[in-house]
Amino acid sequence: MKLFSNTFSSLEKAMDYSTLKQKVISQNIANVDTPQYKKKDVSFKSVLDEAMGTRLEANKTSIRHLDFKENGESGYGTVIRQNVNYNHNGNGVDLDKEMSDLATNQIYYNALTERLSGKFNSLQTVIRGGK
């Protein structure tokens, strides 16, 4: 018998994703003036594959169909965006976009923490017998 639903583990994985995204965005912002630095991003698909414990495979009915893999994929679900240059020195970081992504990720993380807190409060209520 399973005592808890998968909600706690799903929220934990989502928080891990958000934390990784925060680190990658912070690295991008820190290197905004570094020549030839290429923007990094978090591949949601690889994080999803890890959370599900399986790798998504495409059912190809034609050789013209594309595979489900990304070019430039590296460890920990991060992807380096090679073909983007925003500055004259070859830097691929758009500071305004990174700040926007940072704010979006912070809102997402806060929503996750509130949901996790609500789950623990519900569990506490059940343990106390509804009091």
Rank of each mutant, 00 (worst) to 15 (best):
R81L: 14
R64Q: 08
I25E: 01
A111K: 04
G77Q: 05
Q22Y: 05
Y108K: 05
V24P: 04
A30Y: 07
N87G: 02
G77M: 00
L112D: 10
D33T: 14
S5D: 14
Q36T: 11
N59D: 14
E50H: 02
H88V: 07
A51G: 12
I25H: 01
T104R: 06
L56S: 13
N105D: 01
I63D: 10
D16V: 03
Y109P: 03
G92C: 03
R128Y: 08
P35I: 02
Y86K: 07
S100W: 11
T78D: 04
I29A: 04
S5E: 14
T7A: 15
M99E: 06
K2G: 14
V42T: 04
S5Y: 11
G53H: 03
N59E: 15
G129E: 10
T54Q: 14
D41N: 10
K60P: 10
N83D: 15
A58Q: 11
Q22E: 02
M52A: 13
K23C: 02
H65D: 13
K13I: 03
R115Y: 13
Q124K: 14
M1F: 12
Q82L: 08
L11P: 08
Y37A: 00
A14N: 00
T61S: 12
I29L: 12
K119V: 15
T54P: 03
Y76R: 04
L112N: 11
I127Q: 08
S117G: 09
L116C: 10
D49P: 00
S18E: 07
L20V: 07
S18D: 00
Y109A: 05
K60S: 13
R55P: 03
K119N: 12
L48D: 04
K38E: 11
T113D: 06
K21S: 03
S26D: 11
I63K: 12
L123Y: 11
T78L: 05
L48P: 04
G90D: 05
K2D: 15
T7R: 06
I107P: 05
A51M: 02
R81M: 15
F8G: 05
D101I: 00
S46V: 04
F68C: 00
S74K: 02
I29T: 10
D101C: 02
Q82F: 12
N83E: 12
Y108P: 08
N6A: 09
N91F: 04
R64K: 12
M99D: 08
N71G: 08
K38W: 10
G92D: 06
L112E: 11
D94E: 13
G118E: 07
D33Q: 07
D67E: 10
N91S: 09
I107T: 09
Y37K: 02
T78F: 11
T113K: 15
N28L: 05
K97H: 09
Y86D: 05
N110L: 13
Q124E: 02
K39V: 00
E70N: 08
L66K: 05
E12A: 15
E50T: 04
L48N: 03
T54K: 14
K97M: 13
S10I: 15
M1Q: 13
N105Y: 02
S46M: 08
S117D: 12
E73I: 06
D33N: 15
G129W: 02
Y37G: 08
K21R: 14
Q82A: 10
M52N: 06
G53D: 06
S74F: 05
G92H: 06
G77I: 00
N105T: 03
F44V: 00
K97D: 12
S46Q: 08
A30I: 06
M99H: 08
L66M: 12
L20Y: 02
N28Q: 04
S9G: 03
I107H: 07
I127H: 11
V47Q: 01
